[in-house]
C-alpha cells in the first residue's frame, strides 16, 4: 500500500537516507571523507611501485591504474553498501510503511555522491599523471550513468538474496578481491594471452573499465559495439535486479 504521496516524496527520502548513510559511514573519524580517497590512493602507490617497472609498455602507468582503481572502488563500495542496506534498516522497515527500495537506492546515491566528490581531487591527480584534455572527456557523464545503472542492478540482486541467505554477503567478501585481480585494473587486458580472452570478456567489469579508459586514457570515442555492450549489460543487470527484488520483497519481513 504505497500511496502516490510516498512516490512523490521518494527523492526527499533518498536524500535524507543518503545523507544519513554518509554521516554514519564517517562517524567519529577524524579524516572522514578523506578516507574514501586514501583507499584507492594506497593501492595506486603500491601498484605504481610494483607494476610500473613490470609493465614498461604501459605509458603513463599511474593514470592508467588510477582510472581502473577509481571505478573499481566506486563499484565495490556500492555493492557493499547496497548489500547491507535492507538488513541494516530492518527496524525501520518493520515499523514504517515505506518503499523498501528506498534503502538500496539511497546506498547507491550516497556512493555516487562520494564518487563524484572524489573526482575533484582525482582529476587534479590525473592531470598530474598526464591526462590529456579533449572534448571526449564529456562522454564520462553518460559513462558514469551507465556504470551506475549496472552497479545498481548488481547491488539490488545481491541485496535481495542477502536478505534470505547471509552467505551472499560472505561470498562477496571472499570473491571481491579475486574479481579485483581478474579485472584488468592494475594491468592491461592486452597482456592476457589470446586463448584466455573469452574468459576475460565474460567479466562485465572488464568492459566498463575498458570503456572508461578509452575515454579518459586514450581520449577517444568508444565504438558503437562498446556502447551497446555496456548499455545492454546495465539494462540487463537493472532488469534482473528489479525483477528478483519485486518477486521476493513481500517475503522480506520474516527474514530481517
Amino acid at each position: 500500500m504505497i500511496s502516490i504521496h510516498a512516490l512523490k516524496n521518494f527523492p526527499n527520502l533518498v536524500t535524507a537516507v543518503a545523507v544519513k548513510n554518509m554521516k554514519m559511514k564517517y562517524k567519529n573519524s577524524a579524516l572522514g571523507f578523506v578516507w574514501s580517497l586514501l583507499h584507492p590512493l594506497a593501492y595506486l602507490i603500491i601498484f605504481t611501485i610494483v607494476f610500473s617497472n613490470a609493465f614498461p609498455d604501459i605509458e603513463r602507468y599511474s593514470l592508467f591504474a588510477l582510472i581502473g582503481l577509481m571505478f573499481w572502488t566506486y563499484f565495490n563500495n556500492t555493492i557493499n553498501q547496497m548489500m547491507l542496506s535492507i538488513i541494516n534498516n530492518a527496524s525501520v522497515l518493520k515499523t514504517i510503511a515505506i518503499p523498501k527500495l528506498l534503502f538500496p537506492f539511497s546506498a547507491l546515491a550516497a556512493e555516487l555522491f562520494t564518487f563524484l566528490l572524489s573526482f575533484i581531487p582525482f582529476f587534479g591527480l590525473m592531470i598530474f599523471f598526464g591526462l590529456n584534455f579533449s572534448s571526449e572527456l564529456l562522454l564520462l557523464i553518460p559513462a558514469v550513468i551507465i556504470f551506475s545503472v549496472f552497479s545498481f542492478g548488481a547491488g539490488l540482486f545481491l541485496c535481495t538474496l542477502n536478505v534470505f541467505f547471509r552467505d551472499i554477503g560472505l561470498l562477496w567478501n571472499t570473491l571481491s578481491p579475486a574479481i579485483f585481480y581478474f579485472t584488468p585494473i592494475a594491468y592491461s587486458s592486452k597482456m592476457i594471452p589470446e586463448k584466455y580472452h573469452l574468459i576475460i570478456t565474460l567479466n562485465p567489469l572488464y568492459h566498463y573499465i575498458e570503456f572508461m579508459r578509452i575515454i579518459l586514457y586514450q581520449n577517444a570515442v568508444p565504438g558503437i559495439q562498446m556502447w551497446l555492450i555496456t548499455i545492454g549489460m546495465a539494462l540487463c543487470a537493472a532488469l534482473i535486479g528489479l525483477l528478483v527484488y519485486h518477486k521476493l520483497k513481500k517475503n522480506f519481513v520474516s527474514f530481517y
Binding site: 504521496h5 516524496n9 526527499n12 527520502l13 537516507v17 554521516k23 525501520v92 518493520k94 515499523t95
Partner: peptide, 22 residues
Amino acid sequence: GAGIELELSGYDNIKLIATLMG
C-alpha cells in the same frame, strides 16, 4: 525508538524519522 540512529543527534533523528514518516 525504531529507526533511531544512535550515532546521530536528537535533532538529526527527528528530521530523519519525520522524513521517513512522509
